[in-house]
Design a protein around this nucleic acid. Structure first.
Lengths: 324, 324
DNA sequence: CGGAACTCATGCGTGCTGCTTATGCTCGGA
DNA sequence: TCCGAGCATAAGCAGCACGCATGAGTTCCG
């Protein structure tokens, strides 16, 4: 019912006939037999309603319509080739982009390392980065505005059951540590949170505070938060001034110098896991896979105090081409 | 073995998916079922080696490669549409050209009428005209530099057996007339060539002279050619001056005023037939068919003394779509 | 001038591609 | 937790394009 409006292959054939001056030669050039080419030409003439070639002695000659086809064939073919090349560039990571959203302390530590490695490996791939706290980052991911969301969550609470809609790649295990003034010598080991029940607290971002509150609740008290700031440097300054104690993620401490204060794991332990989240299907997209690889690689190389690579629950998988 | 490099239909599909945001909707838009669209997308991904769409919740979302395809789809499609439109314009005679070669006296009479009618009927069709004597015109035709050659030949000798390689459309029958000075009153009727055996002759172009010589031979003498000129006006001037008698085609006389001379059919009669010659296959080309029609129409309207429309040996045929 | 080689057109048979129908699976909404 | 929507997959089938064989016409050469 629909006699194929017009085919690029047909244009190629007409062009080959024009170039070689012979249906047979054109057929050879295109890797098919002469009758096939002849039939294709007749099909083209049928859909166009006008002759494309006329017999001229032993060979054929293109009509004016045929010349039009031959002339436009290069335009169509080049557009097609350009498309193919562009796609190939994207597929081979010579071009394209990856959009990543991450929370601030990851942006200060993990992301630079990962994106730098990514740039070294794939210079043409331009990463886009947006700073966003985990909830916003996940919203951006769901909205399709980013390809990867680097988020953290309390290790105590499992991954919120978002089902198979999201692919979570564990990157780091980040111990939440209490930061005490340097004068407040408690040694190097873990400190009981209960011993700090009466101290004024300096809390970080709201989500951190949630984890802090939960951990303190398990220790049997509710922290008195006198200072609230998302700025880790500021928090460290407050601690250094002796105005309180802070619970900060180890990753944040790794990003900034922190003289005159000491960091300690807590008892009970508070750990947050940092993971890259993406849509499951996008792992087959080369750019996303490469970015996830780079993130995992950077996480593996980034081993500071209180920050250690996540146990690889998915051995080798996650960036290949898993189906299902 | 050759998995179709890339198809315009596939690009259209990707574009439709991009526009509608759904494979099902895209399939509806393109008039096919959802599984067909899904399979086509998978085929595209197979040839590209990279995903084009990823499932996103209820629907699908295009990957970056898919976006590239969707973006380039319009370029390819528009190039295809432009080609189609251009061919349609040529086929419907809104554009294009017809190249005609004709001998001088036809260029002065038949061609203007035919080409004017052609221009009225098809303003976009630009006729190209080249003046050429019959042998050269036929050579141009064989070389493919013109589409139609308007030629004449001696009616006594049949068409030189050029077989089915040429299509001859008879246009006019043109009596060769002898032109006598006005003072040389011979009445209006035909004159015996034998009576002019001793007169000096003014001969036209070589081919005309051939016919003249042949006709005179049939009348039993060889004309003494004292003046040779291809210029009919000059020949008429010579006759008018009483320097000789001329044998001119009636069509030439119809093109120029000829006072003070008289024109007479000859006994034995000498007639040349004027015909349009084209390659047989080109009659299916609309522009050529229209030009042939215009030529035939002009020939039918052009009825002067000694010039009459050719008997239509091919009733109605010759411009339609004859096969074989 | 006749034969040979070449080129295009056609008829028929076959293999394959792509579509359709039917079904399962996943996800989102109530 | 159920239901609706959308995509993926399997199987069956139709259509078509290709390939082989052949015929017709043309050019070139002897």
């Amino acid at each position: 019912m629909s006699p194929r409006p017009l085919d690029a292959a047909a244009l190629r054939l007409v062009r080959a006939v024009h170039d070689t001056g012979s249906v047979t030669a054109a057929a050879r050039e295109l890797g098919l037999t002469q009758p096939a080419a002849s039939q294709q030409l007749r099909a083209v003439e049928r859909v166009l309603g006008t002759p494309v070639v006329v017999r001229a002695g032993r060979g054929v000659r293109l009509t004016e319509a045929g010349l039009v086809l031959a002339r436009n064939a290069v335009a169509v073919q080049s557009a097609l080739d350009a498309t193919l090349e562009e796609v190939a560039a994207v597929a081979s990571l010579r071009a394209g982009r990856v959009r990543v959203a991450a929370f601030p302390s990851a942006a200060a530590t993990l992301l630079p390392a990962a994106l730098a490695a990514l740039r070294v490996r794939h210079p043409g791939l331009v990463p886009t980065f947006a700073e966003a706290e985990p909830p916003e980052a996940l919203a951006e991911l769901d909205a399709g505005r980013v390809d990867i969301a680097v988020v953290f969550r309390d290790a105590a609470t499992g991954p919120d059951g978002d089902g198979p809609r999201r692919l979570r790649v564990p990157l780091l295990e980040d111990d939440v540590v209490v930061v005490l003034p340097g004068s407040d010598r408690q040694g190097d080991g873990a400190v009981d949170l209960g011993a700090l029940a009466d101290r004024p607290w300096i809390a970080g971002c709201p989500q951190c505070r949630t984890q802090l509150v939960g951990t303190c609740a398990r220790a049997g008290f509710a922290p008195r938060v006198d200072f609230a700031t998302d700025d880790y440097v500021a928090a460290l300054g407050l601690v250094r001034a002796g105005l309180g104690v802070a619970a900060l993620p180890g990753l944040a401490l790794a990003a900034v110098p922190h003289p005159e204060v000491t960091a300690h794991p807590t008892r009970p332990g508070a750990t947050r896991v940092i993971e890259a989240v993406a849509h499951p299907g996008t792992t087959r997209v080369p750019a996303v896979a490469a970015a996830l690889d780079a993130l995992r690689g950077a996480a593996g190389r980034l081993s500071a105090a209180h920050v250690r690579p996540a146990p690889r629950r998915r051995p080798g998988a996650g960036t290949g081409a898993p189906r299902g």
